[in-house]
C-alpha cells in the first residue's frame, strides 16, 4: 500500500497544493458563506479533473473510474450544500 503511495508522491503533492489553496481561500472568506460554497464547488471540480488525469497518465482510466470520481466530488458538494444551506440558510 505504502509502496503504491510512494509511486504517486508527485501526484499527491499536486493534489495537496490544490487543497491547501482552496482551504486558504475558504478561510479567507469566512464572512461570505455563498462565496465559500462557490470556492468548494470549484475545488471539487478540480479534484475530479485531477483524479481522471491521474488515472489517464497511468493508463488505468475507464468510464467506471470517471463516474466514481464524479460521484465522490458530487458527494463533497452535497455535504457542503447540506452544511451551508441547512445549517446557515445561504
Amino acid at each position: 500500500m505504502f509502496k503504491k503511495i510512494n509511486e504517486h508522491v508527485a501526484y499527491y503533492i499536486s493534489l495537496i497544493v490544490i487543497f491547501a489553496l482552496g482551504a486558504f481561500l475558504m478561510s479567507s472568506t469566512t464572512s461570505n458563506k455563498q462565496l465559500q460554497m462557490l470556492i468548494f464547488v470549484i475545488m471539487a471540480f478540480f479534484y475530479v479533473i485531477w483524479g481522471v488525469l491521474h488515472h489517464f497518465i497511468n493508463h488505468e482510466l475507464s468510464s467506471k473510474i470517471v463516474v466514481e470520481y464524479i460521484l465522490i466530488g458530487t458527494l463533497g458538494v452535497a455535504i457542503m450544500f447540506f452544511l451551508l444551506k441547512g445549517g446557515f440558510g445561504i
Partner: peptide, 23 residues
C-alpha cells in the same frame, strides 16, 4: 478496477477540515 481510495480519503479529510473552518 476502481479509483484510488487514498485520493478519496484525502478529499474527504479536506472536507472535514473545511467543516471545522466554516463553523
Amino acid at each position: 478496477l476502481v479509483g484510488h481510495n487514498m485520493d478519496h480519503i484525502l478529499f474527504l479529510s479536506l472536507i472535514m477540515l473545511l467543516i471545522t473552518l466554516i463553523v
